[in-house]
Design a binder for these strands. Structure first.
Lengths: 202, 202
DNA sequence: GTCTATAGCCAGATAGAC
DNA sequence: GTCTATCTGGCTATAGAC
């Protein structure tokens, strides 16, 4: 009774994720996605109508993977230190397993400002106010250094995400080979946790 | 006696920078560049032969703007603290004036790994060893906390560059409008300097 | 649901006049 | 050096058979 084959649809999505995430919307080719999925172009259009819709499905699924855990961590009933630790230890390995994901998201948001605007008015990102509120309260009572919570959240995402986004550049700047850079990533959870906690410690 | 008109060449470069940096190599259109430069497609090819070569000229000029000052700062005869301060105060305003530059560089390096490889074997990035060596020495004599210099350089670039690269995402996550995010950028030099110095202070 | 074949368009590149 | 006109290939998308 089903009008779409679940396996085919899944194969298409997997292929599309791979191609779109490594080449971007503009650089991706429907033919290449079809090849990777083991089908032909016509079937691709049968399932997703056109390139834009396939792209949006991939993009939405990409952000859908990133968002829920952010939300869970920042809104949990945890201390500041616990949240920082949880965020860093969860996200660094996750992004390490999905290396193209953050570049893809960032690239498309920057290249298609109109799409970005529409997307965010339809799909809200997780809220981080609770965590930022905790930071304000803690600095009020002198538990941590006086710090702008918005700046600190920026720092948090920066030190976690940037090494993956800027990998080709930083690999070269630090004169590492792939193995050497992977080693650096391995040590990053501990380094980043320590450095973030130190930066707000009194 | 000249075979190329300097003004035309400059007009093309300016237009190409703008289009390539905002849409990327794959998304850019030669027609759009020609229009913006006030000429036609044929002349574009007369000056730069093909799209790839025009792109490479733009890319090289982009990295050429970023590299020299990094080199100057990190190899200067300055203390660790002075280098951090100089780097942050120079680069945040610079990138703020050239917002598309880092996304463009990062995006193209990630989307074209082969090109990236070739590019870096022909054009070396600035060296940061002197700075990293200073960090090692300073932690040996107990002047600063024990810190992996590679990790610290990663942090340095992360906190400086990421807010521009991840702007559309972070703007949304922090629930800012454009003005609010610009204000955050304004306060960033001071915040980042303090936070980096704190993170290595004993 | 899946395929082959092809329409139709658009973009990069060139020919050739001025 | 700059233009108009055009070729050529490639890519999205659809028509239509099975």
């Amino acid at each position: 009774m089903k009008s779409k084959d679940q396996n085919t649809e899944q194969a298409i999505m997997n292929a599309a994720v791979e191609i779109f995430q490594s080449k971007g919307m503009a650089g991706a080719r429907m033919q290449e996605i079809a090849d990777k999925a083991g089908i032909n172009k016509a079937l691709l259009h049968y399932y997703f109508r056109n390139k834009q819709m396939l792209f949006e499905a991939v993009f939405k699924s990409a952000l859908g993977q990133l968002a829920p855990e952010i939300s869970k961590i920042f809104n949990a009933d945890l201390s500041i230190e616990e949240k920082i630790t949880a965020f860093v230890s969860y996200y660094i390995p996750f992004v390490n397993q999905n290396r193209f994901l953050p570049v893809f998201v960032i690239q498309e948001l920057n290249n298609n400002p109109v799409f970005a605007e529409q997307f965010f008015s339809a799909n809200a990102l997780p809220k981080t106010e609770k965590f930022r509120y905790q930071l304000i309260e803690a600095s009020k009572i002198g538990e941590i250094r006086n710090v702008d919570p918005d700046q600190f959240v920026l720092d948090l995402f920066a030190v976690v995400v940037f090494p993956f986004v800027g990998r080709p550049l930083m690999k070269n700047l630090l004169q590492k080979d792939d193995q050497g850079f992977d080693d650096l990533i391995q040590g990053r959870i501990e380094h980043v946790t320590t450095m973030l906690l130190n930066s707000i410690k009194k």
